[in-house]
């Protein structure tokens, strides 16, 4: 029976067990990729137009040139000019608008018509608010109410909904060097994490709320860090402490936070979430405005580090 049935069956299988080719890629269809982030405080705006590619190992130059890119808001419209900039050693092809300064709360549309006829577009509403107010009551470094915590909160008057915030607290200072005086800034992290022998600074994330807590010990660490390894503390002159908030609409917030979240969240996900608001393409079209206020600094606190203090 073995000879009659099993062996022929095995032989049959050996012949039919050919190795199939697997198609793991869909037929490639090029997609336009558009990045444009409107800075509401500037009249110069940039857009970047690229294309998706099929070969990861040979991506080539994917910038799309010769496209008609146009920004339109309530009362203005501008065609962006195809240009190039050198960033480090890298040449970056961009489209630039030099006189496009939309009002806060205005609706903006971007349209890009590629030379092959493809069209991508997107629209957003810029963050809207009348004024930015930092709650100054009891705000001073070092903090007085609770010496361990610096609580900073802010208010936007007549603001639109769905706004997100990226706060920053920076030390602005100047250093006397051989070349003269250098102006520098140092962003104070939320905390420092020990990773091996290194301390890694952790900066604020994009948040929907309008307040943030800094620990005084981290502020002090930051003040020490600016002159770390330099015994000439008196060469350092602290000018001010600035609290800045980037106020952004939801599309930019979602895109930026998706990258931040994938890198920083406690997760076991294997793919980054794809966040895009580009019609017929991928990428992001977003907008933001930046506001800042000075945070009062106690003179004795600054002098305790051996620095000079010239409030600006």
């Amino acid at each position: 029976m073995i000879k009659k049935i099993i062996i022929p069956v095995i032989i049959l299988f050996i012949f039919v067990s050919c190795d199939e080719n697997i198609v793991y890629k869909a037929p490639f269809k090029q997609k336009p990729v558009l990045y444009c982030v409107i800075n509401a405080d500037s009249s110069v705006q940039f857009a970047m137009l690229q294309k998706s590619f099929n070969d990861k190992d040979n991506p080539g130059n994917n910038y799309i040139k010769d496209a008609e890119v146009r920004l339109t808001s309530n009362n203005q419209s501008e065609n962006l000019i195809d240009t190039s900039v050198i960033n480090g050693n890298k040449k970056i092809d961009l489209y630039v608008a030099r006189n496009f300064k939309p009002e806060l709360g205005s609706k903006i549309k971007i349209e890009a018509k590629l030379s092959n006829g493809q069209q991508v577009s997107s629209s957003i509403t810029l963050p809207e608010f009348k004024s930015f107010l930092l709650d100054q009551s009891g705000l001073i470094v070092p903090p007085v109410i609770d010496p361990r915590i610096l609580f900073i909160s802010w208010t936007l008057r007549k603001a639109s909904k769905n706004l997100y915030f990226l706060p920053r607290l920076t030390i602005n200072y100047k250093v006397r060097t051989n070349k003269g005086e250098e102006f520098r800034t140092y962003e104070i992290p939320l905390e420092y994490i020990e990773a091996g022998k290194k301390e890694i600074p952790i900066y604020p994330h994009i948040i929907p709320g309008q307040s943030i807590l800094y620990f005084q010990k981290n502020i002090e660490t930051a003040f020490r860090e600016i002159s770390k390894g330099d015994s000439n503390k008196s060469f350092y002159t602290i000018q001010n402490l600035t609290f800045e908030v980037i106020i952004m609409e939801k599309h930019l917030a979602q895109y930026a936070a998706s990258i931040q979240s994938f890198e920083n969240s406690y997760s076991v996900k294997i793919y980054e979430p794809l966040v895009s608001n580009i019609k017929n393409g991928i990428g992001v079209f977003g907008g933001y405005a930046k506001r800042s206020e000075k945070v009062p600094l106690d003179t004795d606190f600054v002098l305790s580090f051996g620095y000079k203090f010239e409030e600006q």
Binding site: S52, P59, E187, I259
Partner: peptide, 24 residues
């Protein structure tokens, strides 16, 4: 079942500490 790959793209990471949302 599995998900087909349709291509690749250069994803912009806003990682500049000074200028957060620069296209550079």
């Amino acid at each position: 079942p599995f998900t087909l790959l349709t291509g690749f793209y250069d994803k912009l990471h806003f990682n500049g500490q000074q200028n957060k949302f620069s296209l550079f």
